[in-house]
Design a protein around this nucleic acid. Structure first.
Lengths: 268, 268
DNA sequence: CGGTCTATTGAAGGCGATCAACATTCGTGG
DNA sequence: CCACGAATGTTGATCGCCTTCAATAGACCG
């Protein structure tokens, strides 16, 4: 139990303080700071997003279902979730993984109904951010507004990369690529310690995300183990040789846009 | 030559006026009106977007390459293009098709470099819309602003559906689904007459979009022909039985969000 | 009219699916 | 704390969708 994923009992601030030496922030802010440095008031407003009434969902339950009426934007505080779509005959595809700090899409602003579902992997704590709240943030100035754009834009970029992954890479490459992405994204929110992190996904989850069968996922995991690239027991994942894993996957982290592209907007 | 795709010689207005009885508009406006009804001044401003200096790209040339410095948002006036990404070893995945009326993503606003390329299928005419132009549009009020959000949101939704397509559907379903999507999107901009339209894609293009080999695309096309679902000769495509084609593909048009979701915002 | 691009067809092989056990871990309640 | 059942992970054997390779036909263009 010691190093497992944060549960409902210990909040996200706990897991944060263990990871980073910077002043503890919630994971969205950690991520946005990869784009731009905020002024104090901006940081405070972003910080305050996590203050709203927190909703908790039990593991393996849905946060929202296809066809539901869309409410505001959701901010994941801790836990893992995924977006998925189901075909008429029951086949299911995981479309995206949602990690702490992820804003679930702006969809809710525009569309009346969700065209996909969201399911919790672990227990998930999140807040619903009403639209006025976002508008108030944007009103703080271009720095925050563009940071939110950056966030939405990165999500779109990830979705494009998933398209490439499913269309062009073979099974081993596909799995490796997903793992590389997760490690990089977890690092961005302070949830990966070097090359080690908790990945609470089952092999069935991985199968639904990579478009293969659970059986074949298992074989690919073992292949990666046999090549000395990863160690993975329960939730405890470690990339023993991340460089080689990235090579296998032909992983190019550029699409995650984690290189402070908004530097020119930095607060002094 | 009579019914082939609009070329550089006959502008887009020509092709428009042939399709719809409504007052001729450019294809972006046609599409946005699936979301909301605009007031006259809004319509005029959107109309004026197409007035800027038109850039023409020859067929099978790139509009932009991965790594290029991002400029403004591009609006396709006529012709077909696609976004694609290339792996180190040369494999290529088409990520999205860009049809007349499509705004090429807002990417340019935020990111310094493109993380993907855009290639022209046919000769393409487009305009670069500078950011101030967009800001001026948004300043017209919430109707236009939300329509632009809707547009971006639909693009994201399409990208999610492509993820499902590549991950879960088999070759025949995948191809059918792509064809259904194209027919529906072409209709939305007045470029499909009932179940007939020009599709200027080669089977190699389809292969790169669906993650299969050109050889197998050919076999699937023939399968659809044999089942009496489609007729396709050169660019002239016809869905002989669109309902059955949609069934084969398990195509649900909801993700295209073409049902006037912004109705409540309509100008009187 | 020759050259290139695209479509088409055939044959063989492989990647990943499918089916079927079995092992192991985990959650839960007795 | 143990016992039970369910969920997850693992392994093997077989099958088939799709790839690969190769050759030909047709379409289009300069």
């Amino acid at each position: 139990m010691a190093l497992t994923w944060v549960s409902e009992h210990n909040g996200h601030m706990l897991s944060q303080s263990a990871m980073s030496s910077a002043p503890p922030t919630h994971p969205l802010l950690a991520r946005l700071q990869h784009y731009v440095q905020f002024a104090d008031d901006e940081r405070a407003s972003l910080e305050a997003l996590a203050a709203g009434p927190v909703i908790t969902v039990r593991q393996r339950r849905d946060l929202a279902r296809e066809g539901d009426k869309a409410r505001g934007v959701n901010l994941i505080l801790d836990g893992w979730a995924f977006r998925y779509k189901t075909l008429e005959d029951g086949r299911r595809q995981i479309i995206a993984f949602l990690l702490p700090g992820d804003l679930c899409d702006v969809h809710g602003y525009i569309h009346r109904e969700l065209d996909h579902s969201t399911g919790a992997v672990t227990p998930v704590r999140y807040v619903e951010i009403p639209r006025e709240r976002i508008e108030a943030l944007v009103a703080l100035g271009p720095r925050v507004a563009q940071a939110l754009w950056w966030d939405a834009s990165v999500s779109a970029s990830i979705q494009r990369e998933w398209t490439v992954n499913l269309g062009q890479r073979d099974a081993l490459e596909r799995l490796s690529h997903l793992l590389c992405e997760l490690v990089h994204r977890l690092r961005a929110v302070g949830l990966a310690d070097d090359n080690r992190c908790d990945i609470p996904l089952t092999q069935t989850d991985l199968a639904e995300a990579t478009g293969m069968t659970p059986v074949h996922v298992n074989r690919m995991v073992q292949e990666l183990r046999a090549r000395g690239l990863i160690r993975w027991k329960g939730r405890a994942f470690e990339a023993l040789d991340l460089d080689r894993l990235c090579n296998v996957a032909m992983f190019n982290p550029a699409y995650l846009h984690l290189d402070r592209e908004g530097r020119h907007l930095d607060a002094t």
